[in-house]
Nucleic acid binder design. Structure first.
Lengths: 233, 233
DNA sequence: AACAAAACTGAACCCGGAGTACAGTAATCA
DNA sequence: TGATTACTGTACTCCGGGTTCAGTTTTGTT
């Protein structure tokens, strides 16, 4: 969903050790540094390509070519395409959670009022999108959702979990807003929270369809307008 | 983008005669009734499957199996997968334009005020989505956008055109609103128009990811709220 | 009924992808 | 140094995908 700051190298908490995801071997070989680099490299390449051309169209062949490894190397790290997909969604979920909560924390540091925090959060998010040099790379959730029949049940589940994380996170902040302000119209907090996910997902699609880099940013600011109108005096 | 009322049989204006789309033969064989039925049948099946599992993952094989025709039969109607994709987008674009303008016309018949018309339009759209028995089938624009590297330039172009149609249509109505009302905040009409596309596209993604049929409807009503807050006294 | 055009059938073609197996080798760490 | 990790390389199976085309049936027209 969000834009990754060209991540690699740094060992992310959680998304590590080979074959931990859905592996036959539950053992879990005590990952070495090099192994993790290769694994993350595979994942970076796969994610980029999947967002560009879809999951089914992305072959293991092309991934290993770009990564400069052999097929055996790939299957050493992943049990197959499904396992890779799951690992990708898992990492994606963690990265997003990390990024969003980071932005909320910064907003809390700078401002006291929950509403102003929420508005700043959206603005920070918009700025982040604005700083991307080209079009937003896309969101794995959307990608897998539009290829749902090509992906196993576990991937569908973690995809849904990811969206539920966003709902929880956004709702949490909006709940605080709700305690200090009365909305001009009757709305469900969860719907308002989902609307941010909706605007991001939709913004990415429309932005990409039109090749209009800034559209996503403008849509985020429209959402921000809505929140303002709803709660500001 | 919208939901098709289980269309088939009726010869749609424009989307007809075999191989008219991108064919080698620019001839254009004067289509017969049976030919059109088969052609539309292929397209219906293809569209449904593409929205479920993506373009690349949808094989000609499975399409002709469900359609009960041979491979040669398929290639009689389409020059290949790319040609099929183009024909699908073309038909999709026409259907959407037809549906949206129909809803706007109904709103104009029932109400005089531009703002109330716009609000009614959104409500009619939401009701239509609400009447779907299961999840929204998905939008071809989003599907092709997330597989953009698997689709040729012409398909990308007509996909963008389709989104531009929506912008034009929604902007037209919002322009009228703008002439009668002053918005509470400073907004670009085109952004407001794009937001409807955004909410629909995003709503479909999030709705499908969570398997929550009603989410899309609720999101449309949130957009409606925004318009109300923006323009209503 | 006859004839042309339209609407197919069926089989063959080649390609590339997922996944397996496994023997051997190089790098890393304790 | 020795054991574990992280691979390479090859070879092989199996499958299905897109595309072509020569021939056959169906349909519409006169």
């Amino acid at each position: 969903m969000t834009s990754k700051p060209t991540s690699s190298e740094e060992p992310l908490p959680g998304g590590s050790s080979p074959k931990e995801s859905t592996s036959k071997e539950t053992s879990g070989k005590a990952a070495s540094a090099k192994g993790n680099i290769t694994r993350n490299n595979i994942m970076d390449i796969a994610e980029r390509r999947i967002l560009q051309k879809g999951f089914s169209a992305t072959s293991i062949e092309e991934i290993i070519n770009e990564a400069g490894i052999s097929k055996g190397g790939f299957f050493y790290h992943f049990d197959g395409k499904d396992d890779l997909a799951y690992a990708l969604m898992q990492r994606y979920r963690e990265q997003d959670a990390f990024l969003f909560s980071g932005l909320f924390r910064r907003a809390e540091e700078l401002l006291d009022d929950p509403l102003q925090q929420m508005l700043l959060f959206i603005k920070l998010l918009a700025e982040m999108m604005d700083e991307l040099e080209d079009l937003h790379p896309g969101c794995l959730v959307a990608s897998f959702t539009y290829e749902s029949n090509e992906v196993n049940e576990q991937v569908k589940l973690i995809t849904a979990d990811s969206v539920m994380d966003w709902r929880a996170l956004f709702s949490q902040q909006l709940e605080k807003v709700h305690q200090h302000y009365t909305p001009k119209l009757d709305v469900e907090i969860s719907d308002l929270a989902d609307m941010l996910s909706t605007v991001i997902e939709g913004g990415i699609v429309v932005s990409r369809a039109l090749c209009d880099k800034k559209l996503l940013v403008r849509q985020l600011l429209e959402y921000r307008n809505y929140i303002r109108l709803l709660y500001e005096a």
